[in-house]
Design a protein around this nucleic acid. Structure first.
Lengths: 107, 107
DNA sequence: ATTTAAGGTTAGTCTTCACTAACCGTTAGT
DNA sequence: ACTAACGGTTAGTGAAGACTAACCTTAAAT
């Protein structure tokens, strides 16, 4: 399994980074635009975006003066798949535990 | 939206808690069993499990002397749904951005 | 009744990391 | 050329929280 997945969860574990991430849900934004809607400096936003980019949750591209960030849909899909797989495994193990418990009680 | 979702991501953001969480994927475990497979004390594991329980990612039940923890499948499903929804929104916004970019270039 | 093992709680320490301020390079406009 | 706005980088600080050690209760065993 990709260890990147854990790093992504770790990255989103910070409330400010999660807020930045959600700002990008509706579409690409420049660093300054994000910072203006948050109670932190551009510097902080820039650092957070670097983390998000390093773990593959956002991508960036230059537009003249500005740096435009947007969600990396593949990165999000990875997270969804991980939790989906996890969910299925959990259901499975729950079934087994329930059956085992039933057998133990009925003997 | 459930603010709980962000708390869940936050909870799994800690590597030790993520490790504990993954230990429970295959089935219910007691606190001591988890602690034995990790480089931290039972006390730490107990505290982490409390956090995971508070945000709805695990449940617990007594078995005589011991406290048995297991994954809360509903909690995991919530995370999966969140990221699935997020993924769809991101794809949508990506489409729009691409179309807009195409129009701008062709005019 | 004592012992043993389980797990939760608390106080205190220590590390991690989010944040700001200051600086730098870059680009567009005048 | 100069100015202004953008964004990335660094050093230093502060606060949040992960961890251990010590203590407590509870339950089963002898």
């Amino acid at each position: 399994m990709k260890t990147n997945l854990k790093l992504r969860v770790q990255a989103l574990g910070d409330p400010t980074r999660m807020a930045i991430f959600e700002r990008l849900e509706r579409g690409p934004l420049a660093v300054g635009e994000i910072a203006r809607s948050l109670p932190v400096t551009r510097s902080a936003v820039s650092q957070h975006l670097k983390v998000l980019k390093d773990v593959g949750l956002v991508t960036s591209q230059r537009a003249a003066n500005r740096q435009i960030y947007q969600i990396d849909a593949d990165g999000v899909a990875g997270l969804r798949d991980y939790f989906d797989h996890f969910w299925q495994e959990s259901l499975q193990s729950f079934k087994h535990a329930a059956e085992k418990s039933f057998k133990e009680k009925s003997q």
